[in-house]
Design a protein around this nucleic acid. Sequence first.
DNA 1: TATTGTTATACTCTATAACTATA
DNA 2: TATAGTTATAGAGTATAACAATA
Lengths: 151, 151
Amino acid sequence: MTSVNGLSRLAAPPHVANLLGVALERLREQILAGAERPFPGLRVSHYRLLDMIPPEGARITDLAAHAGMTKQGLGQHVDYLQERGYAESARLEGDRRVRLVRRTEKGDEATAFARAAIARVEQEWAERLGAERYADFRQALVELGVGQPTR
Amino acid sequence: MTSVNGLSRLAAPPHVANLLGVALERLREQILAGAERPFPGLRVSHYRLLDMIPPEGARITDLAAHAGMTKQGLGQHVDYLQERGYAESARLEGDRRVRLVRRTEKGDEATAFARAAIARVEQEWAERLGAERYADFRQALVELGVGQPTR
DNA sequence: TATTGTTATACTCTATAACTATA
DNA sequence: TATAGTTATAGAGTATAACAATA
């Protein structure tokens, strides 16, 4: 990254977009957990989906709306998770068009793992900034996320 | 998103990953500028690349390292931008393997636009949180991004 | 007819592998 | 032989369009 062939180094006064991107990347790395990979088939998008399924289960349409994606795309992820035993689903009695999606026990474990990974990063950040500054940072994020047009 | 078919709403106690994601999404939206689209062919990834090209130009290899992506992937974006007149490139005298990439004037305009879009969002955030809290927030992000394993 | 979910297809972003030209 | 960049290909993530089953 140093000067090569007489060309100076790249301009990089990081703006918020970059900063947020780096922080998010750090979380992704922790969730994938490097070489460990406790849940080999799972990618970050799958952890995200598993995480948003409530204990009673949810409909594909609602999950899609909540994730801000299409039913088609979300349904594909559900199939993927179901094939690998992280989720299960059944047609709803009373309205057989609806597929009620639930996490399996294995899906619960994966979700717990991902949440723990995120908690580890938050822990590290809190140590780096100090508990109070980190709490402020987090609170600021919450306030910035409220009432924003998600799409 | 409300209760349907007797199913309760989705669990969504947003964790940092979600919060960061929402914030980043807000920036992306502003850069794409909804229906306006001042630079129709440009996607967020292109603005990012344009933004990291210094005035003297840069080599593909260096840009790739800086962006944390492969030369192949980056080179593809460069071609895309060049075809549309946002970037230009020439083999370097003294080492003709090297392609020196520069922004065109149109590329400069696009970059200025993207930076202004980001500035608008920062402005809005600063108003929402207050200037001081926003400055703290931003500073926290800077510190969290320092010394992290980018890849 | 409206709604839920599916199948088919395509685009975006990025990666790996194999290659060419130049040094 | 090493380095800069390219061509070919693939996979991950998501979208649009057209459809089937059920209500």
